[in-house]
């Protein structure tokens, strides 16, 4: 019949019109900024530096190895190494970055820096409200603006963060066990060395000539 397809189309549109008052999936608008979509866990926006503990400078995991700087495709990371060292989470003295800048107007959120970091120091944040009206430098994030705590990391990416934490705890446990074993060996060696150095002290006591008075 003439016009049949047109009538079917009209019926379809009418169904959507009335359906939009009734069912949720025919009106999918989220009224931003009053409503927000729930954050999907794996979202990645811009990088941030993770620190353990309370002090962001002391607890920073980054050791300025500059691997992320080399691997970043648009070359938006700028690192300068420090001259002194500070202890890291495992107790070893490491250098740290004196400056760590990321230009997020260049960053393309590709996550390659996160993949190649051997120290779990740089992870992807979920903050996308980074726009600013300052043209010169507001989008160049420095070390302090980039540092966020491990608790924050656990809050935004729970699965990933707990896996990282478990792995680090395991490493720490292994290190401690190794250190303990090393300490035991050292203590045993010390005791042996002391025994060799002073045989008189360690010789089994002879029966005293005197009487037990």
């Amino acid at each position: 019949m003439v016009g049949e397809g047109i009538l079917k189309g009209l019926a379809e549109t009418a169904r959507n019109f009335f359906g939009s008052y009734v069912s949720k999936d025919r009106l999918t608008t989220v009224q931003y900024p009053e409503q927000r979509e729930p954050q999907i866990e794996a979202t990645r926006d811009f990088p941030f530096l993770v620190y353990d503990g309370a002090d962001w400078q002391q607890g920073m995991r980054c050791v300025a190895c500059q691997i992320c700087e080399k691997e970043c495709p648009p070359k938006c990371i700028f690192i300068e190494k420090s001259k002194d060292k500070k202890p890291d989470a495992f107790g070893k003295m490491q250098i740290y970055p004196a400056t760590f800048n990321i230009d997020i107007s260049v960053c393309m959120s590709c996550q390659i820096c996160v993949e190649v970091c051997p120290f779990d120091a740089i992870k992807m944040d979920v903050e996308y409200h980074q726009s600013s009206d300052d043209r010169f430098g507001a989008l160049l994030l420095n070390k302090q603006r980039l540092s966020k705590s491990n608790e924050y990391y656990n809050a935004i990416h729970p699965t990933e963060a707990s896996a990282v934490d478990a792995q680090r705890a395991e490493e720490l446990a292994k290190l401690e066990a190794k250190a303990k074993a090393a300490a035991e060996v050292k203590a045993a060696a010390e005791a042996k060395a002391a025994a060799d150095a002073n045989p008189a002290l360690n010789a089994s006591p002879q029966q005293p000539a005197g009487d037990p008075q």
């Binding site: 959507n16 019109f17 939009s20 008052y21 025919r26 009106l27 999918t28 009224q31």
Partner: peptide, 10 residues
């Protein structure tokens, strides 16, 4: 508004 509702939006 009518077009919007037909297109599943406000």
């Amino acid at each position: 508004k009518g077009l919007g509702r037909m297109q599943n939006r406000y």
